[in-house]
């Protein structure tokens, strides 16, 4: 499988590579060069162009996008209802960009009949990817704790505190950040159930999308229309 990862930094990308492989259960190749966005809302703005590029110019089967929730609405079960769209939910917004963009793209040369469109995998790190890195090590860091904090107006931790807990500083160098990111996600040793349990909406949504890729890959291509 060949896929693209849209991330904010090489450290995020390295961690996502590990997690995506855990969920897919198999190694994968990535398109080059690495795709980067400058955080929200740049991700949303650049995503249509990236999808178009991947569709026409690469053999990428799918695109993985993970954004930080920051202080915005966290994706929730009601958002999964058919036709539902929460305008303040970043997962809903990114999924909408995927839908709108892919719907209008004509078939591309070289794409197999079973893989006409770039597959979607969208995740939301609540409130930042460092929360995922702490999963299983700091039991106070969960989506439930964050959402309860949003409801009460008193967040249990800040993005800066999460950085401190992961790196021991708010200003890690890139090599150190990358090393720590990979160390922390590798603790899960291929088993992402704890991440799905503690981050069911942001990480769970990503894992669900990725697992749907396996079934898409397994299903036979649609028969060609009769002439």
């Amino acid at each position: 499988m060949k896929l693209a990862i849209l991330s904010e930094s090489p450290a995020d990308e390295a961690a996502l590579r590990v997690l995506v492989e855990y969920v897919l259960g198999a190694p994968f190749a990535t398109v080059q060069p690495a795709l980067r966005a400058r955080g929200w809302p740049s991700v949303e703005q650049v995503l249509p162009a990236i999808l178009r590029h991947l569709h026409f110019n690469t053999a990428a089967d799918g695109l993985v996008v993970v954004v930080d929730s920051d202080d915005t609405v966290v994706h929730d079960d009601p958002h999964e209802a058919v036709g539902y769209y929460h305008p303040l939910c970043r997962i809903c917004r990114l999924r909408a960009v995927f839908r709108r963009t892919l719907k209008n793209l004509p078939p591309a040369h070289g794409r197999s009949a079973g893989q006409q469109k770039v597959l979607r995998a969208v995740g939301l790190a609540v409130p930042a990817i460092e929360a995922w890195y702490l999963c299983g090590r700091d039991t106070a860091v969960t989506e439930t704790a964050w959402i309860a904090g949003q409801a009460s107006g008193r967040q249990p931790y800040s993005r800066r505190e999460l950085k401190w807990r992961v790196y021991g500083t708010e200003r890690p160098s890139l090599p150190f950040e990358l090393r720590r990111a990979v160390q922390e996600v590798s603790r899960h040793q291929g088993d992402v159930r704890r991440l799905e349990n503690d981050f069911p909406r942001g990480f769970g949504a990503l894992a669900q999308d990725l697992r749907s890729w396996r079934s898409a890959a397994a299903s036979p291509p649609a028969p060609a229309p009769l002439a």
Binding site: S9, R36, T169, R171, S173, L174, F176
Partner: peptide
């Protein structure tokens, strides 16, 4: 632009030596 993170980190190294 993608290397500006390295510029920032290099300057942070001066200002926050304990962090490195």
């Amino acid at each position: 632009p993608r290397m500006l993170r390295e510029v920032r980190d290099a300057l942070y190294r001066l200002s926050y030596p304990q962090d490195c």
